[in-house]
Amino acid sequence: MEDTHEGPASATDYIVHHLTNLDTEHALHTELANPFWNLHWDSIFYSVILGIIFVGSFFAAARKATAGLPGGWQNFVELIVEFVDTQVKDSFHGSSKLIAPLALTIFCWIFLMNFMDLVPVDLLPALGLMVGIEYMKVVPTTDLNITFGMSITVFLLMIFYSIKIKGASGFAKELLLHPFGKWMIPFNFLLKLVEEFAKPVSLALRLFGNLYAGELIFILIALFTLSAGVNSLGENLSSVGTITAFIIQVILGLAWAIFHILIITLQAFIFMMLTIVYLSMAHEEH
């Protein structure tokens, strides 16, 4: 644990610093007795802020929603709602008041959290440093707690709907008797357990992995000028090497950011789609 932060001493320090959450221990410079209570303040802060931005802006459109000619923002909101509704209707054939709003929330919220990846990697942490916040990860979806928090909620909903639709005995039968009949109950159960637990784990890890890797690459790209600067400490910072590194960084950063627009949208969409599919599977009788 560092007590003071004096800027990156080396490239490794820089990367590690960027991948460290502002948790309670780092914020208060203490060691907690139980690491379970080591809340990641930055992840929760950005996730809540982005969640409020999502529901706030959508609620603003919903409150003034008219059946007449929709204004610009209402139009945009309706576009997204229509898009999500189509996906839900295509994959989910039961009737549920929850699934579509759930899918909408997942899509928009994850998209916004992913979008933080496109904010220049050093901008918000540097601003935080100015007001004395030493560590800050601005992309909540690069935190396993956040992605697992969502996928486990989805998992609980899957179990809830399985039991609600099929009854406790039906759910138990599904766990024990498929796919090989009653003589293979332990094997069936093991298989089903793996199958079911793979769902939330893959949901969470897929999102986390994509965003974590994306963030890491942004950090590495940022290192071009930074390492040039670090290497030339004491020398003339506007040397030819630094300028070249700067140009390369701009080009790579631009290319990766443009590519990343696709990734963040795709990951939000995949999470939403799989949630719909998993919940529709939970609704189906076998």
């Binding site: 080591n38 529901v55 909408l104």
Partner: peptide, 28 residues
């Protein structure tokens, strides 16, 4: 590390879904 953040996130997620389901989706 997995810690209390996960449960905080679950709570926030639940609240957001509830709000969307109650006040956003039906109106739009």
């Amino acid at each position: 590390s997995i810690n209390v953040t996960l449960f905080a996130q679950m709570l926030v997620f639940g609240l957001l879904v509830w709000f969307t389901m109650s006040f956003v989706w039906p109106l739009i």
